[in-house]
Design a protein around this nucleic acid. Structure first.
Lengths: 182, 182
DNA sequence: AGGTGCAGTGCAACTGGTTGCATAGGTACG
DNA sequence: CGTACCTATGCAACCAGTTGCACTGCACCT
């Protein structure tokens, strides 16, 4: 596995950056598929530097704390290429909401329904955010190639996932509306 | 969080069972939303018994090893009801395939495309399996209510997730087919 | 003057999940 | 007759991810 290392290598290959910057970037790109907190990123960057995959230079800033800007070293690029060619196991869905719904009749069904509605709104909001990025950054998707195309396709994955989750929540709410207030 | 405990409580509330049986059941129901290995299940069952959420009785079998059949105790039901009413954070997507696609141009694009195709087939196979269960166990979904309805809706979530993942893979393959063999 | 929030890095403790291994009797296949 | 797989349980070690906290200094609002 060890995907966070490789996600960081991808991000740093595109553009060098500090741990903090990487955490921000993750929020709005690879983060659609692989979220990470800053704590984790700092720890992993350190480990990666020990392994020789990245190097850092201290950069002083005025009005802000110093930062450590990381860039990918040759062994890091090699490792990334190696990992990209290696197969990974397809993931299973993993969402507590499904567990709650499955057990709904063993507790307060109304509370579970409320929870589904809340998740619906959250996923719908993410969907809207992703679609806004899509319109803004990729107005002509048929013209894309290479790295940009790949970025676009990852975004499309995020859009599709949020769309289908939202639709599922709607289906659940519809079905529970009928049986619920009886 | 602690969702596995609660997933087990849900499953044991429906029907008592041993750790092994629970692991099997997970493969084909709650497992759509929360997978677990037998190791983890044994460990968690032990912990749950210490907490008084479940109790077990040893059952001798002929031709097979003895098993420990677990059932939910009153504190376990209480805990489950409490947890069901409690909010959870909506999950983020978490799939390495997105990371690989995002970094595809930094390595062997053909290998990544092959990997997407492999995942497509795997997800399509799961989709077919879920749909088979849907047709077999829920031929008249509009007639459902209560526990059965909830089970059906969870299954629908699995179907939708696999469907949308498969569709996304197809979109990716289509886009990469055009730029790839150039 | 005081509170909030952002940029920036980091440690320590904990929880959750995976992997490898051990044990043991039964069945099914070549 | 050996091998491999299924039922059944479990330990130990490890890896990944989360949470809570600590420190600095600037900017902005009230």
């Amino acid at each position: 596995m060890v995907a966070l290392e490789h996600a960081l290598l991808v991000s740093l290959s595109e553009r060098e950056g500090s741990g903090y910057e990487l955490a921000r970037r993750f929020d709005k790109s690879i983060g659609f598929f692989w979220a990470a907190t800053h704590q984790q990123i700092y720890r992993v960057l350190k480990r990666m530097e020990e392994a020789g995959w990245v190097t850092h230079t201290d950069v002083a800033q005025d009005g802000r704390p110093d930062k450590k800007v990381y860039r990918v070293a040759a062994p890091g690029s090699d490792e990334l290429a190696r990992w990209l060619a290696e197969p990974v196991e397809p993931t299973m869905l993993r969402d507590e909401l499904g567990v709650k719904l499955r057990g709904a009749s063993l507790g307060d069904v109304t509370a579970v329904r409320r929870e589904v509605a809340r998740h619906r709104d959250e996923h719908a909001a993410r969907l809207a955010a992703y679609q806004a990025i899509e319109r803004r950054d990729f107005p002509k998707p048929s013209k894309l190639a290479g790295r940009e195309l790949h970025q676009y396709l990852v975004l499309r994955g995020g859009v599709r996932a949020e769309q289908s989750f939202t639709d599922w929540c709607d289906e659940v709410l519809e079905a529970l509306r009928e049986e619920g207030p009886r």
